[in-house]
Write a protein that binds this DNA or RNA. Structure first.
Lengths: 374, 374
DNA sequence: GTGAAAGCGCTAACAC
DNA sequence: GTGTTAGCGCTTTCAC
C-alpha cells in the first residue's frame, strides 16, 4: 500500500465516503496520448505562438498567407487546442451544466436532448447531474459545477426555497431555471403555463358531471406542483364545488408517492370519481394502484394525466392529458443561456410556454351521475 | 459589427455552420465570479502554496498541526480548487464522456443515470453527447471529447466498423464499449447476451405453433441487431423451420424504420403470425403500424418486444419481452471505466450481462394453427 | 517538513 | 502584422 493510501485511511477520509468533487489518487495519463501543442504548430508553420493563436481564433491582423500556412500546419499536426489551458486563460470552459432530479425520467431526458441539440452546434458540451430531488445534494452538485468553471447552468431545482439557492445559481455567468421560480433569483427562466391546461382539464371533468375530483400533486416546493394546487383550488372555487382537502394531496414526486396517495384516496369513505395525476411519476404510481385495486379507466374512474408519455399516448383508451412540449422547454432553456452568455447584461427573460388539455377517452360521466340521469 | 465578426464572415466560417468544438467570440466572464485561490489560502494559513497543495491533496509529509491550519483556512475562504488549472498540471479532468445515439431514448437515459450514480460519488462528472447514429458526427464528438481531455469514454458506437473508430476510442485513458464489438479495439466492454433471451422467445413462439415469425432488426453495424439476426437464423435452422428472408428485416433503428418494416411485412401475401421487434424504437414503430392496420395483440398477431419499457410493461396484456437490466449495464460500464483508470495496464475485460425472456400474454396460438386443431 | 520556483498550454498585452 | 512575454491556478521537483 502506498503512503498516500495509508494517509488517506489515517485521516478517515476514504474514497467514496463523501461526495468527491474531483477524483484523487488516480495515475497520471500515459504520454502516448499527447497531442500537438500551439508551440508545435508554430514551429511547423515557422511563426510565433501568438500568430498561431490569432490565426486559429479568427482574429484580425494576420496576413492571409500566414494564416493559411498556420491552418495547414495545424491540420498536418492534427492540432486540437487544449480546453483546460484555454479555460484557464479565458475563464470560459464551453461547457454547460444541467441539473435535474433524474435524467432517466423521460421528461428530463427529452429536455436534455433538446438542450444538447441547441448547444452542441455552438460548441458547448453538456454536463449532466442528478439531484434526486435532494436540495443538499443539489447544492454540492452546483458547487462541483462551479469548481469546473462551467459557463452556464440549466437547473430544475429540487427546492425553490432552499437557503442560498439564488446565490448559488447566480454564481454562473449564465443560468436558466427550468420551470422553477426561485425567490430572489435574477436568473432567466423557461416556465410552463400549467394553470391553462389544468384549468381546461377541470372544466372538462366537471362538465362530465364530476364533483369529487382529486389532485395528486408533487412537492409544493417546485413550481409545477404549486401552480397545479393553486389552480385546482381556484377552479373548484370558481365552479362553486366545495373543496375537500383530503382530495388534494401534495408531497413527494416519486412513483411510490403516487401509489400511496392514490391508494389512500381510493380507500376514503367517499372516493373521488376522477383523479388528476400531477406528473408522469405520480401517474405511474396511480396506474399501479388502480391496477392492484382492479379499477378500469374510464368505467370505474376517470383520469387526467399531467405530462404526455408513452404510457398515456399508447394506452387503450388513450389518456386525457395536460401536455407540454418538453423539446421546446429544453431548446428554449439553451437559447436563453446562449443569449445570456453572448450578452451578459441583457435584461432578464422569463419565457412562458403553453400547456394544453387533450381529452381522449380516459374520462367519462361518473357512475353516480349515470344513476341519477338514468 | 466588431472586426472579429467581420473577419469571421470574411473567411466564410460563420458560427453554427459547422460543428464547433469550442465556443468563440464569447465575452469574458465578469470578475465577480472569482473565488479564493491556493495563494489566498496560503496567505490565510501563513504557509506556502506548496504546503497548502500537499495538505489539501492528502499527501504525506505535512505536520498535522499545519494541515489543520490549512484545512481551516481553506474552509474559511470557501476554497475550491480550479479544475482547469489542476487538469493542466495533472492531465486529468475528472470528467467522463458518454456518447449514445439519443439520450432521450429511455434505455440510454437509464444507462446514463446508472453510470452517473456510480461515477459521481467518485468525483467524476458525466458529459453526454448524442450521435444520432451518425458515425461521422460521432467521430466529431469523440474528437471534441478528446480535446476536452476527458479521462474516459463510454460509447454505444453508431457503426462498429467505422474506419479508425478503434483508434479514436483508444485515444482515451480508459474507454468502455456499451454493447458494441469494435474490430481491432482493445477497449473494455459491457455486452448483453442477446442470443439467450431471443432464443427462448423463439422457442416459446414455435412451441405455440408459430412457423412464420418475423424479426424486425436494426442496423447490423451494431452488435445487438447483428446478434439478433444471427440467433434468429440459427434458431430457425435448429428448429428446422424454413427461412424466409423477407421475414428478417434489418436497416434503420428509428420508429419510422420500424413502422415501415412492419407495414411491408404485413402486406405480404403470406404475412407472419408473430413478430419480434428488435428494440424499443422499432417496437414503437411496430405498435403504430398494427394500430393503423387495426390488428389486435395477441388475437391477430403475436409479438415479442426486445427491451422492456413502460409501454411493454403497462400494456394490456403485458407484452412478452426479452429484457435486460439497463441499470446494470450503465453501472458496469462505469465500474469498468473506473477500474481501468485506477489500473491502466490491467488486462482487458468484457463483461457479458444476461437477457431473459418473459412470456406475459402477447403471444398466442396462431389462427392458422387454431383452425387446424379445431 | 516546508518554501521557492518551474512549468502545464494557452491568450493577450505590449513591444517592435 | 508579428514576436516576446507575462501570467491563468495548480502540482511537483528541488533546495533547504
Amino acid at each position: 500500500m502506498s503512503p498516500a493510501e495509508l494517509f488517506c485511511l489515517d485521516t478517515g477520509r476514504a474514497l467514496g465516503l463523501a461526495l468527491q468533487t474531483f477524483p484523487r489518487n488516480v495515475p497520471k495519463p500515459s504520454y502516448s496520448l499527447k497531442t500537438a501543442t500551439l508551440h508545435d504548430v508554430a514551429r511547423e508553420a515557422g511563426v510565433s505562438v501568438s500568430t498561431v493563436s490569432r490565426a486559429l481564433n479568427d482574429q484580425p491582423f494576420v496576413r492571409p498567407e500566414v494564416r493559411d500556412r498556420v491552418l495547414l500546419a495545424s491540420e498536418a499536426l492534427g492540432y486540437r487546442p487544449d480546453v483546460s489551458a484555454r479555460s484557464m486563460r479565458t475563464g470560459t470552459t464551453g461547457a454547460v451544466g444541467l441539473i435535474v432530479s433524474d435524467i432517466s425520467n423521460p421528461l428530463f431526458a427529452a429536455i436534455a436532448k433538446a438542450a444538447d441539440t441547441a448547444l452542441s452546434p455552438r460548441g458547448y458540451a453538456l454536463m449532466i447531474a442528478n439531484s434526486a430531488n435532494d436540495a443538499d445534494h443539489e447544492a454540492e452538485l452546483i458547487s462541483a459545477f462551479r469548481q469546473r468553471r462551467l459557463d452556464g447552468l440549466i437547473i430544475a431545482a429540487a427546492n425553490e426555497g432552499a437557503a442560498g439557492l439564488g446565490d448559488r445559481i447566480g454564481s454562473f455567468q449564465a443560468s436558466v431555471l427550468l420551470d422553477r421560480d426561485v425567490p430572489g433569483s435574477r436568473a432567466d427562466a423557461v416556465l410552463s403555463d400549467h394553470g391553462a391546461g389544468l384549468g381546461e382539464a377541470i372544466t372538462h371533468l366537471t362538465s362530465l358531471g364530476h364533483r369529487r375530483i382529486a389532485l395528486i400533486a408533487g412537492t409544493p416546493s417546485q413550481r409545477g406542483s404549486r401552480v397545479r394546487i393553486e389552480t385546482f383550488n381556484a377552479e373548484l372555487d370558481r365552479l362553486r364545488i366545495p373543496r375537500d382537502t383530503t382530495l388534494c394531496r401534495s408531497g413527494g414526486m416519486t412513483i411510490e408517492d403516487g401509489y400511496r396517495a392514490v391508494s389512500e384516496i381510493l380507500a376514503l369513505a367517499e372516493p373521488p370519481t376522477a383523479i388528476i395525476a400531477g406528473n408522469n411519476q405520480l401517474f405511474a404510481g396511480f396506474f399501479g394502484a388502480i391496477r392492484d385495486v382492479g379499477l378500469r379507466i374510464p368505467d370505474d374512474l376517470s383520469v387526467v394525466a399531467c405530462e404526455e408519455t408513452e404510457l398515456t399516448s399508447f394506452h387503450a383508451p388513450p389518456l386525457d392529458v395536460v401536455r407540454r412540449d418538453m423539446d421546446a422547454l429544453g431548446r428554449t432553456a439553451a437559447e436563453l443561456l446562449l443569449a445570456r452568455l453572448a450578452t451578459p447584461n441583457r435584461r432578464r427573460r422569463q419565457v412562458v410556454l403553453p400547456t394544453t388539455f387533450e381529452a381522449r377517452g380516459s374520462s367519462a360521466v361518473p357512475r353516480s351521475r349515470q344513476r341519477v340521469t338514468t
